[in-house]
Design a protein around this nucleic acid. Sequence first.
DNA 1: CTGCCGTGTGCAATCGGTTGCATTTTTTGC
DNA 2: GCAAAAAATGCAACCGATTGCACACGGCAG
Lengths: 349, 349
Amino acid sequence: MNRDAPPPTRPTIADVARAAGVHASTVSRAMDPAARHRISDAVALRVTEAAAALGYRPSALAAGLRSGRSRTVGVLVPDLTNPVFPPIVEAIEQSLAARGYVTLLANTAGDVERERLIVERMAAQGADGLILASAARGGPAVALAARLGLPLVLVNRRLPPGEDGSAISFGSDDAAGLRAAVAHLVALGHRRIAHLGGPAGTATAADRLQGFREGLAAAGLVLDAAPLAQASAYSRAAGRVAMQALLATGGFTAITTANDLLAMGAYDALEEAGIAVPGGMSVTGFNDMPLMDRVAPPLTTVRIQHATMGRLAAEALLGRLCGTEEPAESVRLVPQLVVRASTAAYASP
Amino acid sequence: MNRDAPPPTRPTIADVARAAGVHASTVSRAMDPAARHRISDAVALRVTEAAAALGYRPSALAAGLRSGRSRTVGVLVPDLTNPVFPPIVEAIEQSLAARGYVTLLANTAGDVERERLIVERMAAQGADGLILASAARGGPAVALAARLGLPLVLVNRRLPPGEDGSAISFGSDDAAGLRAAVAHLVALGHRRIAHLGGPAGTATAADRLQGFREGLAAAGLVLDAAPLAQASAYSRAAGRVAMQALLATGGFTAITTANDLLAMGAYDALEEAGIAVPGGMSVTGFNDMPLMDRVAPPLTTVRIQHATMGRLAAEALLGRLCGTEEPAESVRLVPQLVVRASTAAYASP
DNA sequence: CTGCCGTGTGCAATCGGTTGCATTTTTTGC
DNA sequence: GCAAAAAATGCAACCGATTGCACACGGCAG
């Protein structure tokens, strides 16, 4: 072990080749599992040992430059502080790392221009593919990635019907989740149900609103009477503002929200208005983020499989990159209604 | 599926050079703000226009290979689903992106072997530097990064006294936070105070325990009598287990925890034991993660400046990478006690 | 008018691997 | 035992940028 390492320069393939007494190309093949069989066992062993002795790590930059595959995947998230995304990103990173891929993370912050910049930057970085987590529907990422020839997979978001059909998606059946929430409220006796929707332009908001409508229709309730609001973002603050607007008109005894954070904002507004949950108002959320069982009152919400979505998305992309596996299909996981204490039977005034 | 995407090949510097009627090296200089002044304005303009017309994006791989600077920074996190980290990571990513750097994210999952693997992989990726978020004290990352010549910055973690002195850190004054929590409980009349500590081997756990001790000492309370527990991880489940153990012996009316998640676990155990908070037990947390004001009861906790820590760490690393700015100093931000409803005056039985 | 200097560009080496092809060695078939 | 096929390895050209150095040109001082 050389303790006085003046040159922090890592050993190169040439060093290993010299140490093993072979040509650099032989080292390259010996290290590559796919080309390993083209080398005799004896030489491969000698190379492996020399590499280990020198602590050789091939430069991903050089390899990527020549081979065109950088073993790098870009992950785009609108807002990492939204608790929906960390489990997804973690599952993606874990799945990618298991196959030797590195994760490039970027926040789009919902900004279209920033989204474009990030996709271009990832392409410049030589990313082999992109995983797009729930971006705004109108975002340029999907089209841009297609133009740049970057394989792309969507997660936590349905494939938009109109857009490029080459992208596959891994999400939840959001409409089914909302239908279940509405059915639950109806079963509790509620007839005048409102919906606090997600921000315009997001696929999730549209799907959940659609599910809400279907739920009402299935129960034979009139759609037109249902109070609707649209939050400006998937955030607690936006949920509070939207709920305040809804309360100003009133006329409902229960509300479904498009997202747990929005539900928390609704809690805030209800508290300010002096309305008890669930006594004066039943509330449902969506996502079942951590701690939703510990808030006051524990939130009835729709649980989705974040980690599974992330894992499937990563594996699908990897399969597409390797090209060995048959192309994966889009998947819509089934969400599950989790009943807690924020919903209660309708009490006639 | 459009398989007839003819040239998914991005334009290279040679294409731009040809289009502008200059040599590739001239293009390189014209695109580099630092070398821009060595080129005549007329040529620079021609190059810029040609580049824009072709939609040229320099390959970061090639540039990195030659220049040794990849404009890439690795961020290591133990567990992204711990709500402490997303705000930190987001702030880091934002600061890096603003200066044209790309973020490589990896989860160490607290695993030492995985940590080593990740650092090596990031080095192989040509990362220019590393930001290490609160890793276990004994982890190999700091030493390994030093050996590989990778600049490293710590965030949410104090510089370990014994270890390599070249790393700078951006964290909170954890001990001060715990001292404040203890002082608050003492002011409420509590005399028998317990501490639910973080996992062994983490710097944060040690600092917070130390602050707890200092707080007791400052109030003139006996250290030996204080019940102590150590959670096996910073998680709600581990907090619950540790709290159950503490309750088995009892003898305290208030407890400080090393982390909000641990406090949530403590809530769970207390609920199971039929002990009311704060009626039967006062509880404090640490971090003030989102929603701590909405849990039941709202948690008295120590707020730290996650985003600021992340931003400072990123900027310090960038400053070190550019070498232009004077080397940054380690910073310990001052935490703030946020009093809510999980603590109440001691009621003699 | 010469020589020197500064400025703006071009030239070509280089970063560290990968890979098609050539060449050598070994194995196989008859 | 020899030719042909197969396996193992070497050779050298890349990938796409950066950068030290050389060179051409024009201006300026002596």
